[in-house]
């Protein structure tokens, strides 16, 4: 029952690579560009070109391909099962049909498109992993704050949203401790939390969840009182603790990535690669 000691935090790998040095704001924007572009990929040649691009990113970020791939090992059976289901229940144009039984069928196009889907998902996993390997959680949250703060001008509550995130992550360790205490108390009373079917387990779980929610609410009421009595009024007129300026590297990275994507896009469309 040593929940707190056995809880896993952190993923970041310290280094001074090129990708590490890019401003986190830029990295977030580039990540989104990559993910949105990936959503529209429809051909294998595009995937291969993006794979080459990903390979260079991994090399530049000083992390290893195998290290990220190893992370996928525990979910590999699930991915394969999902892939098989995608093939069996493929609804679109079939191409050549190998096998058919009612609405279940195995077809050439079904296999091709399902493979494409799985590779897409895995390449997005790769790019997101590289992002978190090269960006600390702290600088990530700072970057998000600085990205959405300008939206305050159009009455978007950016500061408040950041505050919600800060409170949430601040209270996780406190609540883990609380939960550990509650579990010990329940077990001492003879509770057997991991037996029975899901309804019985849910009802048993509520013996933990009710006190957890109530104590969370109590803490919330205290915090509300404390903040209101100190006249908390959001982040009006506040400046950031860290004010980073964009460097040359940031501009170049955006230009390079955009150029690469435009190049891949045009190459595949112009030559009508498969």
């Amino acid at each position: 029952m040593e929940l707190y000691r056995n809880t896993i935090f952190g993923f970041y790998r310290e280094s001074d690579s090129l990708i590490h040095r890019i401003d986190p704001r830029i990295k977030i924007i580039l990540l989104f560009i990559f993910i949105i572009y990936m959503s529209f990929v429809k051909t294998f040649s595009e995937i291969i070109l993006i794979g080459i691009f990903l390979f260079f990113i991994i090399k530049l970020s000083d992390s290893s391909f195998l290290y990220i791939l190893k992370g996928l090992k525990p979910v590999l059976p699930i991915i394969i099962l999902i892939w098989i289901f995608q093939i069996l229940f493929y609804m679109g144009e079939p191409g050549r049909i190998f096998f058919q039984w009612h609405f279940i069928r195995i077809s050439s196009l079904g296999i091709k498109i399902s493979c494409l889907m799985m590779i897409k998902a895995i390449s997005i996993y790769f790019i997101s992993s590289i992002f978190f390997l090269t960006t600390e959680l702290i600088s990530f949250t700072n970057a998000i704050e600085r990205l959405i703060l300008p939206l305050q001008k159009i009455k978007f509550p950016s500061h408040e949203i950041i505050m919600v995130g800060v409170i949430a992550f601040r209270f996780v360790p406190t609540l883990i401790e609380e939960l550990e205490r509650l579990m010990k108390a329940q077990i001492a009373r003879g509770a057997n939390l991991d037996r029975g079917n899901f309804i019985i387990r849910t009802i048993k779980l509520s013996g933990l969840l009710i006190p957890l929610f109530i104590s969370a609410y109590e803490r919330a009421e205290d915090l509300i009182l404390a903040m209101e009595s100190r006249c908390y009024r959001g982040g009006k007129g506040r400046t950031g603790r860290i004010s980073k300026k964009f460097k040359k590297l940031d501009f170049f990275s955006v230009i390079y990535v955009l150029l690469i994507f435009i190049f891949i896009f045009l190459l595949v469309r112009y030559f009508k690669l498969p």
Partner: peptide, 12 residues
């Protein structure tokens, strides 16, 4: 803000 933060902490 506070209630959302703490419920978010429970979700995490």
């Amino acid at each position: 803000i506070v209630i959302a933060g703490i419920l978010g902490a429970i979700a995490i």
